[in-house]
Design a binder for these strands. Structure first.
Length: 116
DNA sequence: GTTTTGACGGTCT
DNA sequence: TAGACCGCCAAAA
């Protein structure tokens, strides 16, 4: 198998509950990537896939990646469609809507172990 | 093979 | 409390 680290990011991202959001650091920490930047980078490739990347925001709860969507408004539109309120490109009550992968997922099933 | 960039996070000032 | 700097790891040029 040896999934690439971004493959793991995709799976975790797809497991984000609807109506919930997470941040790059949470995914990075969950996968023990050690760097949130890779998560954002991995999601950058997810554009052409069916990945709910709109549920991933930065630590401030801001839709930092909206600019990478086909239409910058699409990200907040999708979030609002899931019941998440967005104001000034930020998630309202982000702290309450925040979801950590480790709450429902096990590292054992995602830890990459890539290092071919 | 080396350098630069990247949808970020945490800590220091 | 807010702003600035440095650090993480990998892929593309």
């Amino acid at each position: 198998m040896s999934k690439s680290y971004f493959e793991n990011v995709f799976e975790v991202t797809k497991r984000i509950p609807v109506g919930r959001v997470t941040n790059y650091g949470a995914i990075a920490d969950f996968l023990a990537l050690g760097s949130a930047r890779m998560v954002g980078w991995a999601l950058n490739k997810s554009k052409h896939l069916n990945i709910p990347a709109h549920r991933v925001v930065n630590r401030k709860g801001e839709l930092s990646g909206r600019n990478q969507f086909p239409h910058p408004q699409l990200m907040e539109q999708l979030l609002q469609s899931e019941g998440i309120e967005i104001v000034n490109n930020k998630v309202v009550d982000f702290k309450n809507l925040f979801w950590h992968p480790g709450w429902d997922l096990k590292q054992s099933d995602f830890i990459t172990k890539v290092k071919k």
